[in-house]
């Protein structure tokens, strides 16, 4: 009796395994100016640039899920939903023209965008956002996931509540904020940087432009700034209950030790560098020390 039931269950599972999965693969031509708009519940979306004026969408999904690819106005919209029951995670691979603006949002979703040269917007609740390339407006947000931006230019608005933010090789303006994550900025060319976190550290390696303003503020974390020895900046430090360290000679005013709030000038003092921590450590070091 038990053996028969087991055989039936096994046969059912085998049939289910064969029947459940389906492939989605569709390519549509797009005129210049069209944008990609993806809204998904869960899974992974990888968007890559290619050299065709067309969008190709590939996915493996359960037959109980339905994928919808359509043109709405000047957007190619990608959606998926379950015909019944709990929605599944679906992994998408999408090829787009490099000029195409990309907008991806989801709940349990990992997002990767590679090689585009246009606006990118990505938002997820649980999942990472990785963007390599992109130009123009770059809005990347996650609640519980890392936000990574590489090799882009334009204006970046980056937010991750519970995880870190990393930016490498970026040219343009950056606004980055997180609650419990750290923010790492490397090889940045910018005249406007505003970074805030409450529980994380902030680290910066990049060029300080004479006409730039750079603001780094954390509550319990540290601020680690590596500076070129030719830097021209007025440095404002607020350490509240924290500490300040510099790996090169800095003339500190007398009130510095009492109030832990002071400023000093490097070079001509042209740029503005605001460093703040409530309870952590602010460290200044020469760029050479970190460029090993």
């Amino acid at each position: 009796m038990v053996g028969r039931r087991f055989a039936i269950a096994l046969a059912f599972l085998l049939c289910a395994a064969a029947a459940e999965a389906a492939e989605f693969d569709r390519t549509v031509s797009v005129p210049r100016g069209t944008r990609l708009d993806v809204r998904l519940y869960a899974g992974q979306v990888v968007v890559r640039a290619w050299d065709r004026d067309a969008v190709r969408v590939r996915a493996t999904h359960f037959t109980s899920d339905e994928i919808d690819l359509r043109t709405i106005g000047r957007a190619i919209a990608v959606r998926a939903h379950a015909r019944r029951g709990t929605p599944h995670g679906i992994d998408f691979e999408i090829d787009v023209p490099a000029w195409m603006a990309v907008d991806v949002a989801g709940t349990y979703l990992d997002v990767a965008v590679e090689g585009t040269a246009a606006d990118v917007a990505a938002e997820t609740v649980r999942g990472d956002v990785h963007v390599k390339g992109g130009a123009g407006s770059l809005k990347l947000k996650a609640i519980d996931g890392e936000v990574v931006l590489e090799g882009a230019r334009g204006r970046a608005e980056l937010s991750s509540t519970n995880d870190g933010i990393r930016v490498t090789g970026f040219t343009g303006e950056i606004i980055a904020d997180t609650v419990n994550g750290s923010v790492k900025l490397r090889a940045i060319q910018s005249i406007s940087i505003e970074v805030g976190t409450f529980g994380g550290d902030i680290s910066w390696e990049g060029t300080i432009s004479d006409d730039g303003r750079y603001q780094f503020a954390t509550h319990t974390g540290g601020v680690d700034v590596s500076l070129d020895d030719r830097v021209n900046a007025t440095v404002s430090v607020r350490a509240f209950e924290g500490t300040f360290r510099a790996a090169f000679p800095v003339n500190l005013p007398d009130e510095a030790s009492r109030h832990r709030r002071f400023s000093f000038v490097l070079g001509s003092g042209a740029a503005h560098l605001d460093l703040e921590t409530f309870g952590g450590t602010i460290s200044l070091r020469p760029l050479q020390m970190t460029a090993r």
Binding site: A17, E20, Y41, T86, H88, I90, D91, G106, T107, V125
Partner: peptide
């Protein structure tokens, strides 16, 4: 956006892992 339990099998995973799952 929406939240729901994170019990989300993926069809691709299922296909690859079907023999082991069975």
């Amino acid at each position: 956006l929406r939240l729901a339990p994170l019990s989300l099998p993926r069809a691709g995973d299922w296909r690859r892992a079907a023999p082991r799952l069975v």
